[in-house]
Simulated scan of single mutants.
Amino acid sequence: MVSLRWDETEATEIVRRHDGREGPLLPILHDLQAAFGHVPEPAIAFLAQALNITRAEVHGVVSFYHDFRRQPAGRHVLKLCRAEACQSMDSEIFARRVLDRFNLDWGGTTPDGRVTIEPVYCLGLCASAPSAMLDGEPMARLNAASIDEIAREVSR
């Protein structure tokens, strides 16, 4: 179960599970995000101390990888592909349509917490462009009708 509140005891247990592992930062960050729905601000200093690295190193990893969130995501996460193959198949038009429908910018979450829209720079579905991922499920060969259906689905 995801808890949006920072819990140092739970974080300590997550770090302990990775004890002795080489290069534990990424797996720990993934587990923290799974536990808390995002990487909470206190996690940066906590991990730096626990792993004997700098806060800048932890922050650099969190900010470099697009999958790590600093704020909780909405109930639905819609990732829209922005890679070249999808762009060549009008993905930018579809993306603008969705962003405008929810009055969001990239990475934004609706005020009611229903949906977060994120850019992704390749889903590996290039032959089936344009593509997206809704709540971890890939969607390919999108068109105006399927984009509208996705928007309706996440609005429920």
Rank of each mutant, 00 (worst) to 15 (best):
V15H: 06
G60Y: 02
R70N: 03
G136Q: 11
K79C: 04
I147E: 08
H66N: 07
R82Q: 15
H59P: 05
D112K: 02
I93N: 01
P27L: 02
G113F: 13
L51W: 04
E22L: 13
R69S: 15
T12M: 08
S131F: 06
D67I: 14
F36A: 12
P119Q: 04
L134S: 06
D7M: 01
L32T: 09
V2W: 00
R101P: 06
P27S: 04
F64T: 09
H18P: 12
R152A: 15
G20D: 11
N143L: 02
P27M: 03
R101S: 11
V98M: 00
G23T: 09
R101E: 11
C81F: 01
E22W: 09
G108T: 05
D7T: 04
T109L: 10
G124S: 03
R17M: 09
L99Y: 13
E149I: 07
N143P: 04
L51E: 00
Y65F: 15
R101K: 13
M89Y: 09
R75K: 14
E22C: 07
L104T: 10
L123Y: 02
S146N: 06
R96I: 06
G74R: 02
R69V: 14
Q49E: 15
L25K: 03
H76W: 01
L142Q: 09
E153N: 12
V98T: 03
A95K: 05
K79P: 00
R75M: 11
E84I: 12
T109E: 07
L104S: 10
R82L: 11
L25E: 02
D31H: 07
V77T: 15
A127I: 06
R114S: 14
D148Y: 08
R55P: 14
E84M: 13
A11G: 03
G37P: 08
P138R: 03
E13H: 14
R16T: 10
P130M: 00
R70F: 01
E153S: 13
D67P: 10
L142G: 07
L25P: 01
T54I: 05
G37L: 01
F102N: 03
F46E: 08
A35P: 12
R101G: 11
R70Y: 04
H38D: 08
H59W: 08
A83P: 01
N103F: 05
P40G: 04
A48D: 08
E153P: 03
A129S: 05
L125W: 05
P40Q: 03
C81W: 01
I93S: 02
P27K: 06
E13G: 15
A73I: 04
G136I: 09
V58K: 00
D135G: 13
G136L: 11
A50C: 05
C81V: 04
G74T: 04
